[in-house]
Design a protein around this nucleic acid. Structure first.
Lengths: 224, 224
DNA sequence: GCTCAATTCAAACACTTGTATAAATCATAC
DNA sequence: GTATGATTTATACAAGTGTTTGAATTGAGC
């Protein structure tokens, strides 16, 4: 019973990873079969089991990559908007996030995979939380906290951030219905996405400002 | 080959419907097996095929009920808030919707089933759109339009409504992650849900008012 | 050229799924 | 009571799933 070298970087191994990342992101863990993956990767059925032990092993490696990439991607976004004034920071955060999620040309399978895991978690969810979400939580919070004129231990920070994130993700998650309700021929072109992002920005900025004007509620313990 | 009377109302048939509604809402069409349903309904494997032709037939009947019930539920909510001033209307709409979605005691499997179909549609999605969503679209729109001081053919109406709906649904859909990020022991008690709903209301009302203050964009054709 | 380990391959296995069949049971009208 | 049709039951089937196996192929090191 031959064993592959620990994490050897074979050509087929790479192909399987690349192909399955797309498939998993688009269809979810349960709706992708090993045979699909291997056919798309032009290799044998047993390749997945040989290189990744089993389907879940492959998936976890894909998720690992997604979580790391997500962290890097989010860090890049946050870096890019760092020097801007707070309002522009929010505007561009929303714009970039929605493009990653909605633009079909944007090959951002990582956002999609994580959006999927968020709604329908598998045993790999903890990886995503620890490596992909938690590390940028503090910077995300600071972006909102500054607009609120408060600190991270103010519960309004997370409620507002979730309201922003919720609007962005909702457009992605409700796409199947949106496309059916929209007039025929509708597409998520870059211009449409920009317009939606601008709406979410305007809507959210006003929401945040209104809450900033209210008396501060009791602080909460802040967890890292 | 015996055939059941058209839509006979047998006891087992009722049990299957009731049990599978819960299961489908909680786990989605693909993650529920006929054997699960029949075991929970304390009947034979073949009962589903006998009474509903096949699994999809059963599911479509469940969805039919959900779509009708959804329409009725939404109508009731809209009726209940009708006499209130516009702001209170929005506040209570958000509050009731979030309770239906999040309260574990609330046995509102219909909202959950439809939320699921929204994100991961099956061949039954059209039923939901036509019977469960479209019929109340106009009233939903009017609720927002009034706050915006505009008419249904103003694109801001739908963008704002989706922003509100998006926040509500997001809390439902991201529950798996939320529960893991939240401090241990966290639960969606009625009080917690009320607080969240109040936040969404405040946030959204400010967003809507800010957009109302802007110059009106080009109208769009309004589809029934 | 040979060796030996890593890698690929074809085939099969064990299991679950939805569905179909035919017999058994039940209920009701005559 | 019996006949007839509706319902329930036990069982089998075909297709699809992830996984395993053992042989074939490859390729680098000597």
């Amino acid at each position: 019973m031959p064993q592959p070298a620990p994490a050897a970087d074979t050509e087929t191994r790479r192909r399987i990873l690349s192909v399955s990342a797309q498939l998993f992101a688009e269809n979810g863990f349960n709706h992708v079969t090993i045979r699909q993956i291997c056919q798309a990767a032009q290799t044998n059925i047993a390749a997945v089991n040989y290189h990744f032990r089993d389907k879940l092993g492959l998936y976890k490696e894909v998720v690992q990559i997604a979580a790391d990439g997500m962290h890097r991607l989010k860090s890049d976004v946050l870096d890019a908007i760092e020097p801007q004034p707070p309002e522009e920071r929010l505007r561009n955060y929303v714009r970039l996030t929605m493009h990653h999620l909605l633009d079909p040309h944007e090959q951002s399978w990582m956002e999609k995979l994580i959006a999927r895991e968020t709604m329908e978690p598998t045993p790999a969810i903890d990886l995503i939380i620890e490596k992909g979400i938690r590390p940028t939580a503090e910077r995300n919070g600071r972006m909102v906290a500054e607009l609120l004129g408060t600190t991270l231990d103010d519960p309004r920070v997370w409620q507002c951030f979730l309201s922003v994130q919720g609007q962005c993700l909702f457009y992605k998650m409700s796409m199947p219905v949106t496309m059916r309700m929209a007039p025929p021929g509708f597409q998520y072109t870059p211009e449409v996405i920009d317009a939606l992002a601008e709406h979410v920005y305007q809507f959210s900025l006003a929401g945040i400002r209104a809450l900033a004007a209210q008396p501060a509620p009791a602080k909460m313990e802040w967890r890292p």
